[in-house]
Nucleic acid binder design. Structure first.
Length: 260
DNA sequence: ATGCCGAGACATTCTCGA
């Protein structure tokens, strides 16, 4: 199984790179964030042409998440929205079952903007709601294997930040955010990249500004969280840095997990 | 080499992103 998560920062702007990626890597599942399109404008036809089906949770110019799967696998039992999120239907959470046996969720955690802001408080509530939802899914009778992946907007540890001192007083590295993200993991998931790369720096996002990419100034905020049975079967977790280069890149790159 | 913000919209400036 090959599963990918990618914050594309507008699916319309990124569609050529997304189709390039699908052709090059042929993932079984591609989880998208920040699609930034209206539901009517979602490029189902272009994805079908490439051999994929998609389920989207779209809210216009902001946010937007989607699940794309190889057409042969199919998508079933699609649900949109995260129970307990403060702003309902902000299009930050979508779930589906792939190939009849794998439950996946694509998530775009709120940014939080500034510490001590209402948006920061909402971010913590969102992460707490994620932990509850993961607990529900894991507790269900005959619970299928689960992957929750996306833009967590939290760097789990200082090794995931190019300069931890630069983020003191900012979002993405504060203790409450890290504790809340750890709560999601503690509900029964494993950080796939960390499982195979215990000590490596593995940034997935670089600011468009001030040449941060070519200066190596990034964050690891895009995660693939998988149930232990999947984590034990991982053969590769890779960061496709080449997709931060070239024509019209997203500021995030695809994160690819392969398991047997 | 990877290259110095990008995307969307009630657009010509503003909001948001991390």
């Amino acid at each position: 199984m090959r599963l990918v998560t990618w914050n594309v920062n507008s699916l319309r702007a990124r569609l050529p790179r997304v189709l390039e990626f699908l052709g090059e890597h042929r993932p079984d599942v591609l989880l998208l964030q920040e699609t930034k399109c209206e539901a009517e404008a979602f490029p189902h036809a272009e994805l079908a042409e490439a051999g994929y089906v998609a389920a989207d949770h779209s809210a216009g110019r902001w946010a937007g998440v989607a699940i794309v799967a190889r057409a042969e696998l199919g998508l079933a039992d699609v649900t949109s929205g995260l129970p307990g999120e403060v702003v309902e239907d902000e299009a930050r959470w979508i779930e589906a079952t792939v190939g009849g046996e794998l439950r996946v969720a694509s998530v775009y955690v709120p940014n939080g903007r500034e510490l001590d802001s209402e948006w920061y408080a909402q971010k913590l509530v969102f992460l707490e709601a994620m932990a509850r939802r993961v607990g529900e899914l894991r507790a269900a009778a005959e619970a299928p294997e689960l992957v929750v992946a996306g833009d967590m907007n939290v760097a789990p540890a200082d090794v995931d930040v190019y300069d931890p001192a630069a983020f003191v007083g900012s979002t993405h590295t504060s203790a409450p955010e890290r504790d809340a993200l750890q709560g999601v993991v503690a509900a029964g998931l494993v950080d796939a990249f960390r499982r195979l790369h215990p000590d490596d720096v593995g940034f997935t996002w670089w600011d468009y500004r001030q040449g941060h990419f070519h200066r190596g100034l990034g964050l690891r905020i895009d995660l693939i969280l998988a149930t232990p049975a999947i984590a034990d079967r991982l053969t590769r977790v890779g960061i496709e840095r080449d997709y931060r280069k070239g024509s019209k890149p997203s500021d995030h790159v695809p994160l690819v997990a392969d398991w047997t």
